[in-house]
Design a binder for these strands. Structure first.
Lengths: 344, 344
DNA sequence: CTGAAAGCGCTTACAG
DNA sequence: CTGAAAGCGCTTACAG
């Protein structure tokens, strides 16, 4: 199909002035007669003229568009973060292009290539769990396209980062379970290479240590961020000779799997097994029993990452130093972890 | 920050040939000596040269990018459909830009404007519930940017459409409830103006009629596609003097609200109230009891809409006639509607 | 206040 | 096989 649009040239010809004059009139330059401006504006309006942003991009080498890469847009944590990105981008006059990596390095590479070649002005990313190597993001940065990380960050690159206090969130969740009388607390962690997995695991371990509970390797299982992963690990855990009396899941998907598996197996929550998750469980209240969870300010993370990014884009120079913002998580207690406290 | 990239000009200068020659060598034109081609390719490789797609877009008036507008990417139905869009687009060499309307006409207008001005090659849309007027899509089409509708379609515009057999899905769901002995079947429908709402409502009514059950206005409630909407309508329905013995929800979000409200109110599913939803409830099995539902091939809808769109984009002329594809929905029975059948 | 000219990065008839 | 030139739609010093 053929595309039709009005150009500056046609307006110039119709009004018998030069393209330069039309351009100036449209951009409201000061050095133009109000009479000319009026005529140009009127005709532009009438012809429904819009400047071709592609031409402007070619000229300015700027597109007023930023990219976002997340593992999976269907994940509420990420879709909410994208909401935050759009919020800030929109209000500062930028558009947003959304990419999903599906946790695949290959897709992340393809998105990076698209971003580089389409001259997107900057990028907000939560790194795919499969991406141990992040040279593609370093390359973007060197090419002058700033990159800001959120949620899943990496030490392998100097830039702004926004994350949640995973360590503390995990520590508090674990301590809460201990306070409710649990002693055999299992942790279904995320993929091993991911930054947040390590932070959460540390928080879990340190809470055990603080309360004099021995850490047991077999009670920690790594899993993909899927319901199936949570289910399978729960089966493994409950099959152990010494079975856990609590399970702390590293994400909402995983925790949904835990919940499902425990129900299948006929365990009561919280009495047989107390359960707590990690993420913003909007749907947590739908489950029976409703699930306790460490909630994260996902929308705000998107906002902050974007605002840091736009600052980078709009500043002429590389900042003296990069910033890592650590936001607070929040412990929301529900029935799934609310055991009767027995004894001491 | 400043952007650096290699251009054709620099390659030409380094090799002491013309830009034309470099361009031809890169595009592997036939009229070029293999020696020159080799030299150019080598240097391009070494300098990490990529053609500037913005320049090419300006030239060809094509961007190899399509847009998708959905009400809400966090909704599984839409995120899955987007997966289908990406699948086809990717395999045919196109990129995808995702927009959310958040069910707001204003956001839909802003996305349409961006699409028009960025010269996106085409658009796949599920119309926002707030958009009674779709002139903005007609305008895109007239401007030469083809638009294909899926899920939420409109009669106000001639184009390809892909939808599910909502009428039949609703008919079967309602009939199933009747067969399980329900007689006072309520329907929480979607927003009034939306096409699928009407089709589903018709299916519901016709199933009642077929089985000689009188239709009652007060048992149909319109709601937004939210959990809160489903909850509130359920309260209203259960407060009626003659309360329903079954509720058929028009979407998964709504049905989640129904489920929650019934649990809060202490009704047993399916014995007090049988429940059935409409959408691909991946999470349906997580609820207790698991929810029956009319499932839709969302991924496939995205694929088909995109493949129709790309055909439009790549054909030179307007097609003789537009096509409306109606896909099959599927009834998945779970405990929430599985009542004991009493008597005949 | 207005216009002619150059240029953003590329492609492609048109000559040779 | 190669180069010079025009052009995609726009902006902006540079002259006047």
């Amino acid at each position: 199909m053929k595309r039709v649009s009005v150009t500056i040239k046609e307006i110039a010809k119709a009004l018998d002035v030069s393209k330069s004059t039309v351009s100036r009139a449209l951009r409201d330059s000061s050095e133009i007669s109000s009479e000319t401006r009026r005529k140009v504006m009127e005709l532009a309006e009438k012809l429904n003229y819009y400047p071709n942003p592609i031409a402007i991009s070619l000229l300015k080498n700027r597109t007023q568009t930023i990219g976002v890469i997340v593992p999976d847009i269907a994940n509420r944590f990420y879709s909410s973060a994208i909401g935050g990105v759009e919020d800030i981008a929109y209000s500062r006059g930028y558009h947003t292009m959304i990419y999903q990596s599906h946790e695949l390095l290959e897709r992340e590479l393809s998105a990076s290539r698209h971003i580089a070649s389409r001259r997107v002005d900057g990028l907000v990313v939560a790194i795919s769990s499969q991406s141990e190597n992040i040279d593609h993001f370093v390359a973007l940065q060197e090419q002058g396209i700033p990159v800001v990380f959120f949620d899943r960050v990496s030490d392998a690159m100097q830039t702004h980062k926004v994350r949640v206090d995973d360590y503390k969130g995990a520590f508090e969740a674990t301590e809460h379970l201990i306070q409710r009388g649990c002693r055999r607390i299992a942790h279904i962690a995320g993929p091993e290479k991911v930054s947040i997995t390590r932070f959460r695991l540390e928080g879990y371990k340190d809470a055990l240590r603080k309360h004099g509970i021995a850490f047991q390797e077999e009670w920690v299982r790594h899993s993909e961020i899927t319901q199936a992963g949570g289910t399978e690990r729960t089966y493994q855990l409950m099959a152990l000779r010494e079975r856990p009396d609590a399970i702390f899941g590293a994400s909402d998907r995983i925790t949904m799997g835990v919940h499902w598996a425990l129900r299948q197996l006929g365990y009561k929550m919280p009495d047989d097994v107390a359960v707590i998750g990690f993420c913003d469980l909007a749907m947590s209240s739908l489950l029976d029993p409703p699930v306790s969870s460490v909630t994260q300010p996902s929308f705000e993370m998107g906002q902050q990452a974007t605002s840091l990014l736009l600052d980078l884009i709009e500043s002429k120079s590389t900042p003296a130093e990069y910033e890592t913002r650590v936001l607070r998580s929040n412990l929301v207690i529900n029935k799934s972890s609310l055991r009767e406290i027995v004894g001491s």
